[in-house]
Design a binder for these strands. Structure first.
Length: 195
DNA sequence: CATGGGATTGACT
DNA sequence: GTCAATCCCATGC
């Protein structure tokens, strides 16, 4: 298996756009970390202007990363159990990011199955905490660059399937529940399931 | 400094 | 359907 994908890594210009556009644009792209990865099929947008975003109260120690340069990885720890991965968007100084919520596993599947301790493909990366476990993405990668580091997101292949993108309210939040800022690829089995 | 909650998941009733 | 796990960090005194 090759270590690198043929498709180019998304650059800072891709991320330096309105966060909702970036969230839609990331559907179909491939997230890779050291030989493991998959195609992004579910995302959510967060922006400092709305109260569900960690950046809503300004650049606190945790939220500081959200204000970093576009294409920075924002990784934080949730429920004392899971790391969650976001891609920082919008120009430098604006607090906004896209939460990566689900992948179709494509690379290093055996390794990911081992890390997850389960044998069902469908459960490998079908949630924000699952995919970080499968790809071994931890807090050490917070503030790392997605545009030229071990963690990277690649453009879709030219012959990749074109997904129909559906938008819904975001999952698991108690503020700004009305905004339809969750995006997923319609009909894909690896999208996170409603509880 | 003490306290409370959370962009979740898996196990169990 | 219900609940515990488990820790970072935001908030308030």
């Amino acid at each position: 298996m090759s270590l690198k994908l043929a498709e180019p890594v998304l650059n800072a210009d891709f991320y330096a756009r309105p966060v909702v556009d970036v969230a839609r644009g990331l559907i179909g792209c491939t997230l890779m970390h050291r030989g493991t990865g998959g195609v992004i099929v579910e995302t959510e947008a967060y922006h400092q202007s709305e109260s569900a975003c960690h950046a809503f109260r300004g650049p606190t120690p945790r939220a500081r990363t959200l204000f970093a340069a576009p294409g920075t990885a924002y990784v934080y720890f949730s429920y004392g159990v899971h790391s969650l991965l976001n891609a920082v968007a919008e120009p430098d100084g604006v607090g906004a990011a896209v939460l990566i919520r689900a992948l179709v596993p494509t690379h290093g599947i055996n390794e990911m199955l081992q890390r997850r301790g389960r044998d069902r493909h469908r459960d490998l990366c079908s949630g924000p905490g699952k995919l970080t476990q499968a790809l071994a993405i931890g807090l050490d990668l917070n503030e790392s660059v997605l545009t030229g580091g071990p963690l990277a997101i690649h453009e879709p292949a030219a012959d990749a399937a074109r997904y129909e993108i559906v938008s819904t309210p975001r999952i698991g939040i108690s503020n700004a529940v009305d905004l339809p800022w969750r995006f997923y690829a319609e009909g894909v089995e690896h999208v996170s399931r409603a509880r």
